[in-house]
Design a binder for these strands. Structure first.
Lengths: 229, 229
DNA sequence: GTTCAAAGATGAACAAGTTCATAAATTAGC
DNA sequence: GCTAATTTATGAACTTGTTCATCTTTGAAC
């Protein structure tokens, strides 16, 4: 089977979303590109929010941004990438906040929930759009180097919390940090899916069940001989 | 926010895939419908297999089935439902096999892996298409009463294995069966996603990590005072 | 300031999913 | 068997994502 994604091609034919900073010596080209991208991003955000990912039309986004339809494809390879770029900044911000607020000293379940709940809040702002993001980027091959970076950061933060807990004796030492982190993260992914994807639980239920699941992952399902008071 | 799916509309405008059995007294209408649906299903299966879900064209499916394009939409509401209908039978078969072979007496991890591996094999036959199925039906609101039934059956089977294990003392009794089943199933969902969705692991790795994760879910991450020999 | 090559922008054209007015086929009433 | 009513089938037309030949703008050499 041939690889599903054309891996060689750069993001878009030419232009790419320029870096956000308005540098000192900035040519006309760069300034135009920056302004155009700003308009496109605003427009995309608005149309996605109003109509959802599927129903938002590229032509409508282009019209709102006052550019030709084809221009969109100079800044984003396709509609999916537009979605990704729009949410990239916001995810980064949420993630930075979560990292800053991460209390590696707290009991592991609390520390993890402090991180996870931030993203639940983020998703809750627009659940349908969040579901689209998860679907488009975690269930479809997609330029690993962009999204992969965010995912790895997330994983690394979970791993750091796990390692801290292990170090202080809250967790077994014979289980590699990565294995434990994956096990815990699996519950997060599962309940997010149940909430945003399958609509089997509400946001509140997802949070509750996730907390329980994390506890249960730590405690284990095996019968215990004795329990500490 | 309005619900994303038009919940009222029936599956397709009129006709629906007729029941498979060729009843005794069968009118011309029903026979024609049955034959046409058989052709459509075969055609859809072939086109999906050859080109993948996205690249398979409805027009090509229609041509191969020797019907007009619009006719497809009398049998399936949209392309997604065509995918679902095509795979419904096969999923059912796999599931029935798994249920029949389920050895509720085996250690829980083995019993669960006996079930899960059957689906991993199923997915492995066409990973890209399997990923499409998971993406289209678990990350998008979609007529809960169809897919929901399959999912619930799956969940019920896992729960039965869990209950058997609990009964024979392999698991704690103070954790509700549903909670334990969800916790275990989460690892399955996670590693399937890592394999089919994110391409982070191979099929073999997914299986291996899943087995480890199930063990770890049972053992727990908490330090143990003592271990049975 | 003029020239020219490179970068950026445009929108008509294309392909694919979906709809719907219309036609064909089937059934039921007589 | 004929007719009317209902179901089923058709494919042109519409919408939307995407491409690409063409045009415009920019920057630098002179």
């Amino acid at each position: 089977m041939p690889p599903a994604s054309p891996s060689a091609r750069p993001t878009a034919r030419r232009a790419r979303p320029p870096a956000a900073r308005a540098g000192a010596a900035e040519g006309l080209r760069e300034r135009n590109k920056r302004e155009k991208w700003a308009r496109i991003e605003r427009a995309a955000r608005a149309e996605f929010a109003r109509h959802g990912f599927e129903a938002a039309a590229m032509r409508a986004i282009a019209a709102r941004a006052r550019v030709a339809t084809g221009t969109l494809f100079l800044y984003a390879r396709d509609k999916r990438e537009l979605l990704f770029l729009v949410f990239q900044d916001e995810s980064r911000r949420i993630f930075a906040e979560a990292r800053a607020a991460a209390s590696a000293g707290a009991p592991l379940v609390d520390a993890l929930m402090g991180l996870f709940v931030r993203f639940l809040d983020f998703y809750a702002r627009d659940p349908a759009l969040s579901a689209a993001i998860l679907r488009e980027f975690f269930f479809r091959p997609y330029e690993p180097e962009r999204l992969g970076a965010l995912t790895r950061e997330y994983g690394a933060l979970v791993a750091a919390l796990v390692e801290a807990a292990q170090r202080r004796g809250e967790l077994r030492r014979d289980v590699p940090v990565a294995v434990a982190a994956n096990a815990l993260f699996a519950h997060y992914a599962y309940w997010v899916q149940a909430w945003l994807g399958s609509h089997l639980v509400s946001r509140a239920e997802a949070e509750e069940r996730l907390r329980d699941a994390l506890r249960l992952q730590i405690e284990g399902l095996r019968p215990t001989r004795r329990r500490a008071p």
